[in-house]
Amino acid sequence: MKLAALTWVELRKLALRPRTWVSVALLCALPVVVAAFLATSELAPRPGQGPAFLSAVLGNGQLYPAAALGIVVPIFLPVAVCVVAGDAVAGEAQAGTLRYLLVRPVGRTRLLVAKLFAVLAFTFGAVIAVALVSLVAGTQLLGTRPDALGTTTASLSGTALSTQELLVRTLLVMAYVSVSMIGVAALALLLSTLVDSPLVAALGGLALLVASTVLVGLDAASAVHDLLPTRYWLAWVDLFRDPVLWTDVQRGVLVQLAWAGVLLAAAWASFTTRDVTS
């Protein structure tokens, strides 16, 4: 009950902050711009090139929400999530409001959990916004395929998906993409409890993202590939195979949970024993 009240306060703080909405708007803008270019040029990237999935989208705008998430997953979404997570505690410390929250007293564990919930809410909210905006942009700009009567579309394996099935799979993609952000978000949150600069915390989260991306692309590092947080980020594509190829999706979820578990435990240990001198 106390946690619910604090989480509600944290969500309100997030919602009352203009920056939150600006970052969500920017996240949504990119897929709209891409859709506009696709619609006017009718030139999709060749299969196997460019952002995954985009080539399949050209004929059916209903696939576009998933494609749009694929566009924001590598950089845009993690940047936005890291900024919010890095700001969570360090932003309060920098503004001086952290000490006033703590002497209320909100309890450090409770504050950390409420901040985590707020970061997760932001992530999922941003994913929903991107999906909704790109659904509108996709169906308006790219249209639905007329020869299939707008009711069916092809999975990546070539079989037909009903609109209902498409909806379910898009929801799964949204959930998977949100979960994929947990690893970097947890690192940004950990750093946020250690330093008094939200910028440093956010950049730390992004450093993990870049390092992980570099290592995933490096064959010499193949021994650790399966442990890297970005290794399975693009596995959401498997949710559009028929039948769904769950292996990488499951591994991806497990990797995120492992990173989150370790980093959040460290965040809790540091924040609950730390001197607050900001």
Binding site: L6, V9, Y100, R104
Partner: peptide, 12 residues
């Protein structure tokens, strides 16, 4: 006013 209300709501 909004600041004080939020701070007060943080610990019911």
């Amino acid at each position: 006013r909004a600041n004080l209300r939020l701070l007060d709501a943080a610990v019911p």
